[in-house]
Design a protein around this nucleic acid. Structure first.
Length: 682
DNA sequence: CCCCCCCC
C-alpha cells in the first residue's frame, strides 16, 4: 500500500503555531495553494503572494500565507498541492477587528515530499481549538499576563493582554427591554490579587459564555473590550469594566491556587446606617438571616407575566432590614436560618420604609471567611440561641423597617396621629382574633407585649387563611367545620406582619386605620412559639427549670389545662369568666408566670374575652414544668381532648428580632390541631 | 448595550 510510505505529519502542530509557539518545527501538508488576488489591473507576477491551507493530519488551517520571496518554489512546481513540508520559521500575526483573526506567515520551509496523496482526514481548526490551546501558549500569544488593576494601562494599547482571574460572583442571564433595545445580559465579578472588575456580556455573547463561567473558578481571559464603567452602577473598585465579545477567549485555569484565592471586597455598613443612605444607591451589609419568606409569585403589570419575589430579613446587633429578592435569585435562595450572611450590592429602596432589593450584581454569601466581624456575629447568633443576651437585641426599632413590638407601636401612636402620614412597620405575632362575620377580615395581632387591631384585605387575607375569597365565601355558607379549620390554621401562624398605619378621616372623626397589607413568613414558620421577654420571663430563662412551652387552641367555651400526672387543674376559662381574670387567679406555683404571660398575650385587651373564647381560636402558652411528663387539655366535662406526651422540639423566636433563642419548646403541629378540631368541633 | 421596574 502506498500509505505505508506516507511521511509522518505532526499532529497538533498547527495549534502550536497558532498559539504563538516560536522556534518550533512541524511537518505539515499543503492541502491548497492559491495566489492572492492583487489590486485590480495589477498583473505583474513580481511580489505575488500565495495563500496556503495547511494540515497537520488532524486539523487544517486556511489562514496561512507564504513569504513573497518563496514564490519561486511554487513557480518551479516544487511546492504544490499535497506537498509535505517542514516549517522552519513561522510568524503569527493578528488580523481583523480587535485582532480576532490569526494568520500564520510561513517565513521558511523545506519541501519534504513534492508529490503525495492527502494524508488523514483533517477538520478545520477554529476558535474552540485555539481556546483549548495550552494556557502558557495562550499567554505567549497575548504576550502579557496582567493583573486586573493593570488593565487600565493596557486599554489604550488594544488587545494584547491576558488576565487570570476568579469569578467571584455571577448573575443569571436575563432578558431585558427598554426604549432603545432589548436583549440578554449577564454580569460577573472578576477578582485577582490586584483588584476586581465587573465583566458583562450581551445577547449572543452572553448566551455563549453564560454557562462557561462558573462562580469560584479561575479563568484566563483575553480579547475582551475594556470600557469605562458607569460608576453610578459599578460597585467594583475598577473604573473600567470588561465587555465580552464573540471572539473573546476564555480558558479555564486548571492549576490549583495554593494561596488563599482572591475574593470580592465587601464594604459592610451597620444595618441601622441603611436608614441614613440615599435611595437607589448600593450598600453592603452583614448580619444573621433572621427570617426567610416563601417565594411568592405576583402579577407584574409591566412585564405582563408572573414574577417571583422573596423577602428575607437580615439582623445585626442593632437593627433588622428586609431584603427583597427577585426572580431567579428569589427562587434559588437557600440559606440556613440564622446563618451569618454578607450581602454585597443591595439596592436601597423606600418601600414601606427603608428596605433593600436585590439586583443582578447582588451577592449573597453565607460561607464567609472568619473575620472579627463574623466572630462578633457568631457570638450574637450563639447568645440569641442561648437566650443570654437579649438586651442587645431589643433596640430593633432604630430602623424604621425593623420589627417593632406592639407595645412600641402603641407608644408611637400619638406621634402618628399628629403627622397624618403613613407609617410602615413590622410586627411579629399571630392573629388571636379573626372576625369571621365580616367580609373584611378584621383581626387582632398579638405579641407578648400587646395587641393591635388590623384589617386584612385581598391577598393578605387570602394568604393568611390559605384560601381564595370565593372559596371562602362558598364554605362560609355551608360548612362551619371547614371554616373553623381555616381560621384555626390562620391563627396558628406566627408571622411577620407588614403594617401600613395611617390616620384617616371617617365620619368627621379622626381615627387611626391600620391596614395589614402583607405578611411575611419567618423561616421557622411551623407553629413554633413566641416567648416573651419581659423581666419575669428572663428570670425564668436563667433558671434551669426553664420551662418548655406548649400552646393549645380551643374554640370551646370551657377549657381546662391539666397536668396529666396529678390531674390538678392549672387553669380554667369559661364563657362566664374573663380569661384574664381566670388565668391571673390561677397563676401560682408551677406555671403561674407563664400563664400570666399567656394571658397578657391573648387577653390583655378591652375586648370581650368570652367572645374570643367562644367564636375564635385562642391560644395559651403553657410553660411546662420540667417535672411534668405531659399536659392534657380537657373540656369542662373532664373529657381528655388533647394530650401531649414526649415533648417534641421546636424553636423559639425573639418576637423582636426573629432570632431563635432556644430549642426546647413543645408545639402542637397543624395536623394535630386539625384532628383536635375535627374530633371536637361538632 | 445592563443597572428600569416589579411588592405598597
Amino acid at each position: 500500500m502506498m500509505s505505508e510510505y506516507l511521511p509522518q505529519l505532526t499532529p497538533g502542530g498547527l495549534n502550536e503555531y497558532i498559539s504563538g509557539r516560536k522556534n518550533y518545527c512541524a511537518t505539515l501538508q499543503v492541502l491548497d495553494l492559491k495566489s492572492i488576488k492583487e489590486k485590480a489591473g495589477d498583473n505583474s507576477l513580481t511580489g505575488k503572494r500565495y495563500r496556503l491551507i495547511l494540515s497537520d493530519g488532524r486539523h487544517f488551517f486556511s489562514s496561512c500565507v507564504l513569504r513573497t520571496d518563496m514564490v519561486d518554489l511554487v513557480k518551479n512546481d516544487i511546492l504544490k498541492i499535497n506537498s509535505v513540508i517542514r516549517l522552519n520559521h513561522v510568524d503569527v500575526c493578528n488580523a481583523g477587528v480587535n485582532g480576532s483573526r490569526v494568520i500564520l506567515v510561513v517565513q521558511d520551509l523545506t519541501v519534504v515530499l513534492s508529490d503525495c496523496e492527502t494524508i488523514g482526514n483533517p477538520v478545520q481548526i477554529n476558535d474552540i481549538n485555539i481556546a483549548h490551546a495550552r494556557v502558557d501558549l495562550l499567554i505567549n500569544l497575548c504576550q502579557t499576563l496582567l493583573g486586573l488593576v493593570q488593565l487600565v494601562r493596557f486599554r489604550a494599547v488594544g488587545g494584547k493582554w491576558v488576565i487570570k482571574a476568579r469569578v467571584a460572583n455571577k448573575s443569571y442571564i436575563r432578558e431585558y427591554s427598554n426604549a432603545n433595545r432589548n436583549g440578554k445580559v449577564f454580569s460577573a465579578g472578576l477578582v485577582d490579587r490586584t483588584g476586581e472588575i465587573e465583566l458583562v456580556a450581551f445577547d449572543h455573547v452572553a448566551e455563549k459564555f453564560d454557562t462557561k463561567l462558573e462562580i469560584g473558578k479561575t479563568y484566563f481571559i483575553t480579547k475582551a473590550n475594556i470600557v469605562p464603567a458607569n460608576q453610578k452602577f459599578n460597585s467594583f473598585k475598577h473604573i473600567y469594566q470588561m465587555v465580552l465579545k464573540i471572539n473573546t477567549i476564555i480558558h479555564i485555569c486548571e492549576e490549583q491556587d495554593n494561596d488563599a484565592p482572591a475574593d470580592i471586597f465587601f464594604n459592610f455598613i451597620p444595618i441601622k446606617e441603611v436608614a441614613l443612605r440615599e435611595n437607589n444607591t448600593l450598600c453592603d451589609i452583614i448580619g444573621l438571616v433572621s427570617s426567610i419568606d416563601e417565594c411568592k409569585f405576583f402579577y407584574n403589570k409591566y412585564k405582563q407575566t408572573y414574577c417571583a419575589k422573596r423577602d428575607i430579613m437580615i439582623t445585626d446587633e442593632e437593627a433588622s432590614i428586609i431584603l427583597t429578592l427577585w426572580e431567579k435569585q428569589a427562587e434559588a435562595f437557600s440559606n440556613t436560618p440564622c446563618s451569618i450572611t454578607g450581602i454585597k450590592d443591595a439596592k436601597i429602596y423606600d418601600f414601606r420604609g427603608k428596605s433593600l432589593s436585590s439586583i443582578d450584581s447582588t451577592v449573597i454569601r453565607s460561607n464567609l471567611p472568619k473575620t472579627n466581624r463574623t466572630i462578633q456575629l457568631e457570638a450574637l447568633r450563639q447568645s440569641s440561641f442561648e437566650n443570654l443576651n437579649l438586651a442587645s437585641l431589643t433596640t430593633m426599632t432604630q430602623v424604621k423597617s425593623s420589627v417593632a413590638t406592639i407595645e412600641e407601636v402603641l407608644a408611637a401612636e400619638v406621634d402618628l396621629m399628629q403627622h397624618k402620614s403613613t407609617e410602615y412597620f413590622y410586627v411579629r405575632g399571630y392573629c388571636n382574633v379573626i372576625d369571621q362575620d365580616d367580609a373584611i377580615y378584621m383581626c387582632s395581632i398579638v405579641d407578648a407585649t400587646g395587641e393591635l387591631n388590623v384589617c386584612m384585605f385581598g391577598n393578605a387575607a387570602e394568604s393568611l387563611l390559605d384560601t381564595s375569597a370565593d372559596a371562602f365565601h362558598q364554605l362560609k355558607n355551608c360548612n362551619t367545620t371547614n371554616i373553623q379549620n381555616i381560621f384555626m390554621h390562620g391563627a396558628a401562624k406566627i408571622l411577620i406582619f407588614t403594617i401600613d398605619s395611617k390616620v384617616v378621616e371617617f365620619n368627621m372623626e379622626i381615627c387611626e386605620e391600620s391596614q395589614n397589607s402583607e405578611k411575611r413568613l419567618p423561616s421557622c414558620s411551623q407553629p413554633s412559639l413566641e416567648i416573651a421577654h419581659d423581666e419575669e420571663d428572663e428570670c425564668l430563662q436563667k433558671n434551669n427549670t426553664c420551662p418548655s412551652v406548649m400552646h393549645c387552641q380551643s374554640k370551646f367555651k370551657k377549657m381546662k389545662i391539666c397536668s396529666h400526672t396529678d390531674d390538678n387543674v392549672l387553669s380554667e376559662a369559661d364563657d362566664e369568666s374573663n380569661i384574664n381574670e381566670c388565668i391571673e387567679c390561677e397563676t401560682c406555683q408551677m406555671s403561674g408566670d407563664e400563664l400570666f404571660q399567656a394571658s397578657s398575650a391573648s387577653t390583655q385587651t378591652n375586648m370581650d374575652v368570652s367572645t374570643v373564647a367562644t367564636q375564635t381560636p385562642w391560644i395559651i402558652y403553657v410553660h411546662q414544668d420540667p417535672n411534668l411528663t405531659s399536659i392534657t387539655v380537657k373540656d369542662n366535662d373532664k373529657m381528655p381532648l388533647f394530650g401531649v406526651e414526649g415533648m417534641s422540639v421546636s424553636y423559639h423566636y425573639d418576637s423582636r428580632c426573629n432570632v431563635p433563642i432556644e430549642n426546647d419548646s413543645t408545639y402542637i403541629c397543624d395536623d394535630e390541631l386539625s384532628e383536635f378540631l375535627n374530633k371536637t368541633g361538632k
